[in-house]
Design a protein around this nucleic acid. Sequence first.
DNA 1: TCTGGGGTCCTAGGACCC
DNA 2: TCTGGGGTCCTAGGACCC
Length: 343
Amino acid sequence: VVLLTLLHVDLDEFIAAVEMRRRPELRGRPVVVGGNGDPSARGVVATASYAARRFGVGSGMPLRLAARKCPDAIFLPMDRAAYETASARVMEALRTIAAELEVAGWDEAFLATNDDPRAVARRVQDVVRAATGLECSVGIGDNKLQAKTASGFAKPAGVFRLSGSTWPTEMGHRPVDHLWGIGRKRAGRLAELGIATVGDLAAADVALLERAFGASTGRWLQETARGEDRSLLRSHPRAPRSRGREKTFQKDLSDRAVVEAEIVQLARTVAEDLIEGAAKSARVVVKVRWAPFFTQSRGVTLERATADPDDLARAALAAFAVQYESRPIRLVGVRCDVVEWNR
DNA sequence: TCTGGGGTCCTAGGACCC
DNA sequence: TCTGGGGTCCTAGGACCC
C-alpha cells in the first residue's frame, strides 16, 4: 500500500506579484489590483500586496474603500492575459515535479507524492522561483482539505504540515469560518446554534446540522471540521458546466433599450466562448441586479442545443423580458448551461 | 456597503407522474 | 372535495471559492 501525501501550492500575493515583477519599483509598496484600476470606479480588489494589506486592504473589498484605507496605494487594472500566462508557466514548472497535478485556479494547485513531502515542497518552491521569479507557499496534508488549510499557515514563502493527528490542536480553537467552504452566512447560522469554533462543529450533533443545513451539507460540515476529506486529486481538467459573462455598469441604467443592447452583446460573447470550445447550450439564464443591490435571474430552455449567436441573443432577451421592470439596473449577466462539449 | 467577474455545487419548492 | 405518498425533474436562488 502506497500512502500518498498531498501538497497544496499557493502563490503568494499572485496578481500583485506578477505586476511587481514587471515593475520592480513597486516592490515593497502598497499595490492594489482590481477593476479598471480607477479607485473611484465600481469594482473590487482582486489582490492587494502584503504592504497594502497592512493598511487593512483585502480581496473583495470595494476599490473606493481600499482607496480610503490606503490613499497612497498604487491602483492597477486587471490584466487577465498576463496572469494567465504567468499561471501557465507556474503549472508547467510544477508538472516537472508531479505529472498528476490538479490546477485549482490561477494561483493554486494540488499534487500528490510518496516521497518526503517537505523535500518535495522545497523543490516546488525552487522550481517555481527559477521558472517564474514568483514565491509560493506549500501546505502538506493527509488529504486535500488538510493540505489546502496548511498552505494558509505556510504564508509567506513557507511550508506547513497538517495531519489527522495535529488537526484538532491546530484547528480546534479557530472560528468556523477559517474552514474552506464556510463563509459569513454559514458561520452566522452556526453561531445561532451555539457553534463558534472548529472544535464545536467537530463535536456537534450531526442530526442538528442536517436539520439546519440539509443532509448532505450538514454531514459535510462536520467532516470538514474534523479534517476529513475523501475527495480525489482531479488531474484531468473538467469540461465547463456553464459559460457566462456579466457586466456591472458604472452608473445604473434605466433605458430598457440600452440594457437590451448590452444583453445582446454579452450573449454574443458567450456564444463565441461556446463555439471556441465546440460546445452548445439549451438553456440561457439572464441575471439582473437591480439598484441598489437586489439580484434576480430567469432562464429560458431552448428546443435544441445551439451556439448560434442570434439564437442565444434572442433567448437572452426573452429571459430578460419576463423579469423586466421599469427600475434602474446595476448589472446584467448571461449564462449558458453547457450540454455538449466536444474535443 | 461604497458590494467584480468567472465559476461550482447544493437546496427548496413546485409540477408532474403513478 | 373532505384532496395520499413517494419519486423525479426542473427552476431559482443561496452560498461559496478564487
